[in-house]
């Protein structure tokens, strides 16, 4: 579904990603871990099309298309979904109007009929249950005055509404208490199918108790330096990142 080859990206001339290679197939869950500043969030942002990042080399193909060639909105319409690390508060834009515009633009792109108000509300009610979303939140402006946990739940709710094929969760667990973490993970797990894939970007292993990955990759200095199964995450939890850094740095000096 997603193939990343030798991806290099920089921000304001500073290289952040230095040759990422990754293959994600339908039905898989990949975890991307790594110390602070290793490039995890940059990778998520580059895949979603954030403009500040400049791709300097490499290619990304998504369902056979050149992902890097698409605008952020077209990536979303093709089925890429980024759950933001810091969801943006947008005063004056109602959550419901925003979602309806988004859902219908995505549907139009996919050649599906726009949802009328009744069908949209039905879909919304159904998906709200998934993340135990309070109706009251949706009558407010988008993310405005939401708590950290509410914002993250709203991300997963939007993900449910847009039915992506590739979901990228950028540190969705950060700042969540255990109840919110359970609700959010539960939502993500229910949305999993054999046809879609998930990339979980996280600093901590804790989330992976709830969203169990098929593969774990360690990102360091802009490269994937180690890949393994969920046991690798447990090892990282126990030993920290230093042994990986040492392993990589010693190789580099040889």
């Amino acid at each position: 579904m997603l193939t990343i080859k030798n991806l290099h990206a920089s921000i304001e001339g500073t290289p952040i990603l230095r040759g990422i290679n990754l293959e994600v197939k339908a039905g898989e869950v990949h975890a991307i871990m790594g110390p602070n500043g290793s490039g995890k969030s940059t990778l998520a942002s580059v895949l979603a099309g954030r403009e500040e990042y400049e791709v300097t080399a490499g290619e990304v193909s998504f369902k056979g298309k050149d992902l890097l060639d698409l605008s952020p909105e077209d990536r979303a319409r093709e089925g890429v979904f980024l759950a933001f690390q810091y969801p943006v508060e947008i005063p004056g834009v109602s959550s419901t109007n925003f979602l309806r515009t988004a859902v219908n633009q995505v549907r139009e792109y996919r050649g599906e009929e726009a949802l009328d108000a009744v069908k949209f509300l039905t879909l919304m009610k159904e998906k709200m249950k998934l993340v135990e979303m309070d109706q009251k939140l949706l009558s407010r402006a988008l993310n405005e005055g939401f708590s950290g946990g509410e914002k993250k739940r709203n991300e997963i709710f939007q993900m449910a509404m847009l039915a992506p094929t590739l979901s990228i969760l950028d540190e969705t667990d950060s700042g969540l208490d255990i109840d919110a973490l359970r609700i959010v993970s539960n939502g993500v797990n229910q949305l999993k199918s054999k046809d879609n894939a998930t990339i979980v970007v996280t600093h901590y292993q804790r989330l992976l108790d709830y969203i169990v990955p098929d593969f774990v990759h360690v990102l360091y200095n802009g490269q994937i330096v180690k890949s393994g199964t969920k046991e690798l995450a447990l090892e990282l939890e126990e030993k920290g990142y230093d042994w990986i850094k040492e392993e990589v740095d010693s190789k580099a000096t040889v």
Binding site: A48, G49, R50, E51, S71, P72, E73, R75, A76, R77, F81, L82, F84, P87, V88, I90, V93, F98, L99, T101, A102, V103, Q105, V106, Y109, Q158, L162
Partner: peptide, 17 residues
């Protein structure tokens, strides 16, 4: 707000809109 703009685009809404 560029961040808000990107957020809306990342949900499939065309840039102009």
């Amino acid at each position: 707000d560029e961040e808000a703009l990107f957020y809306l685009q990342a949900r499939g809404i065309a840039k102009d809109q």
